[in-house]
Amino acid sequence: MFDLVAFFPRAVMQSIPLLFGSTGETLTEKSGNLNLGIPGIMYVGGICGVIGAFFYEQAGASNGFLAVLIPLVCCLVGSLLMGLLYCFLTVTLRANQNVTGLAMTTFGVGFGNFFGGSLIKLTGAEVPSIALTATSGYFRKTLPFAESTGVFGKLFLSYGFLAYAAIAIALISSYVLKKTRVGLQLRAVGESPATADAAGINITRYKYVATCIGSMIAGLGGLYYVMDYACGVWSNNGFGDRGWLAIALVIFTIWRPNVGILSSMLFGGLYILYLFIPTGTFLAVKELYKMLPYLVTILVLVLTSMRNKRENQPPESLGVPYFREER
């Protein structure tokens, strides 16, 4: 029997890193920057949070507020630096965005594994992982009435604060993009920087700000994964291919963060579906189930391309550097 009450919270928890990643990447892409460094940035966000929490725990302090704030700030600073690096290379120096992004993913994963490995050495543990149980406890703190409200509480109230933050950020991003002056101008920058420039919009500033904020949001996805989903246990390469899934999700949501909330849950569900479908001993079937999110993305790409509606296309100048005096 398919156990929905057990399945749904798992799917949601699986979806939150994806939602953070895709919201961040959507904002970035709306400015015309195709940041393929997102998997690396999420990885860096995660490890920076871990580093912060590790030293705070080592110091033996146990103030709940600081235990949350320190990893949070470390994560944001780490991913911001990654975003700045990406912008400096692609916007200021006008390097190729694809190459830069891929290099940053490789760099981010290497950076994470290096410091992850060092911390593991420091603890001198037997297992190749670090457990930050105390910090994780603060991150996983649920709303007080989650326990007492039965099934409803289990389905909707049993998550840590970052999960609700992810949904709030997605909704806010959507609102900003659709309804505000800043959003309108950001969209114009991604569609046609020359037009936006002639209209008096500072292209460089918009690209930098959107990409850096996007990176910080994506970095939170890494933090959520370690602190909440993985219960504070960092192990090298544990993050898996979630970063790429987040980028696929951007396409799936046709660049709409609010659509991302439900789609990320769909992706999260598909990602862990194999655990809930009785497959017996035939393990190959499980691998087939793991393909589902990617299959769905391809399907959406086919459908949006076939309908060819202009609003559903990627920002027109996505991936193209802009230089005003180009002739």
């Binding site: 002056r181 969209r187 037009t195 919009i201 202009r310 296309q313 027109e316």
Partner: peptide, 13 residues
């Protein structure tokens, strides 16, 4: 900007 409306283009910037 092609995907924006006339009014959105006019108010841009």
């Amino acid at each position: 900007v092609d995907v924006l409306t006339a009014a959105e283009n006019i108010v841009l910037g």
